[in-house]
């Protein structure tokens, strides 16, 4: 009986991500509304069924151009991408970010840029991101917890953002920091990690054409639970490297501290490249569950981006620099 189930839900999945829904956002939203009220009528649990849509903030549609970045795999449904999240500032349950992230103020938003760069300072979101040149990139997303998604992100190459600030030759690494406001993020009152959340990349990783600064997904602005208003997407690394709701960018000369590494260095390295042969003490990294699928699939080296990024790590022992 249980084994039969995937057939049923795989079909439901395809309905959600069908071409029509994806291309026509209004129709998509309306369909979501109907789906939600439909289940209300059947189940009689209105709060539960409507929770997701009721708390989602109003997001703008964005203009963008499509690109060739597309693994050609089924995209994970918008509903799954926006309801199954790790954003511990809003609680550690997967559903917590969708439940609480709407309490975060994302407008106005300012980003502090400092360290080894020519043009540091305080910037408004619009000064950091050129909203007239957004592109869509469909990337695989692999969480260190051995689940994965395929997400159509909107944004700009990270390199194009960083170059604006004129990093100097001393800038060997770049560190990012997440917004941290106790009044809006209840999870900060729990010492799960050493807040605020920080992440970092080596400068050549940050400048790699695949590294992406995202401001939207599925044709719309990011919802808060996905890291609005801007977040990092580094598709060949585990998801936690993709730091959300960035308020600071620092160009530094030494390897910066990163939150998960600081929490448990044995389990989370600075690089955290997706690597099926480097085992995590708690999860086998050789396979993953693609959200919406029943059977596990093999995890690919560098999450399938080996051809593009392997040269960044030439000569490095990846089992040591994991």
């Amino acid at each position: 009986m249980l084994i039969k189930k995937p057939h049923a839900w795989q079909m439901a999945e395809n309905e959600v991500t069908s071409e029509a829904h994806y291309k026509n956002r209004r129709q998509f939203l309306r369909a979501m509304g109907i789906a939600a009220t439909g289940s209300v009528a059947v189940t009689g649990f209105p709060g539960m069924a409507l929770g997701l849509t009721a708390k989602a903030k109003a997001v703008r549609d964005l203009d963008y151009k499509t690109t060739e970045y597309d693994p050609g795999e089924d995209q994970t449904s918008f509903q799954a991408v926006t309801s199954y999240n790790n954003f511990y500032e809003f609680g550690t349950a997967k559903s917590d970010p969708a439940d609480y992230a709407h309490e975060m103020t994302t407008d106005p938003w300012s980003i502090t840029v400092e360290g080894h760069c020519g043009n540091g300072g305080q910037f408004a979101l619009e000064d950091v991101i050129d909203f007239s040149s957004l592109e869509e990139r469909i990337y695989r997303h692999r969480c260190v917890e051995a689940w994965s998604m395929v997400i159509p992100w909107l944004g700009v190459p990270l390199a194009s953002v960083l170059q604006k600030f004129g990093p100097t030759a001393e800038a060997k690494y770049v560190q990012f920091e997440t917004y941290a406001n106790r009044d809006e993020m209840w999870g900060l009152s729990r010492p799960v990690l050493n807040w605020p959340y920080v992440e970092g990349l080596r400068m050549d990783e940050a400048m790699h054409p695949l590294a992406f600064m995202s401001v939207g997904l599925y044709g719309k602005e990011l919802l808060n639970q996905n890291g609005a208003p801007l977040r990092l997407v580094v598709p060949w690394k585990y998801g936690f490297k993709g730091i959300k709701s960035i308020i600071a960018i620092r160009f530094v000369s030494d390897m910066p501290r990163t939150s998960w590494n600081e929490s448990n260095a044995r389990e989370y390295g600075f690089y955290s490249n997706v690597n099926p042969s480097v085992q995590h003490p708690r999860w086998s990294q050789s396979t993953e569950r693609r959200i919406g699928e029943f059977f596990r699939r093999d995890t690919l080296m560098f999450n399938g981006y080996e051809e593009e990024v392997a040269s960044l790590y030439r000569g490095m022992d990846l089992s040591r620099y994991f």
Binding site: W9, E15, A35, V42, A49
Partner: peptide, 8 residues
Amino acid sequence: LYIMGDLS
């Protein structure tokens, strides 16, 4: 609920 499309 999941099969009905409600992931809540």
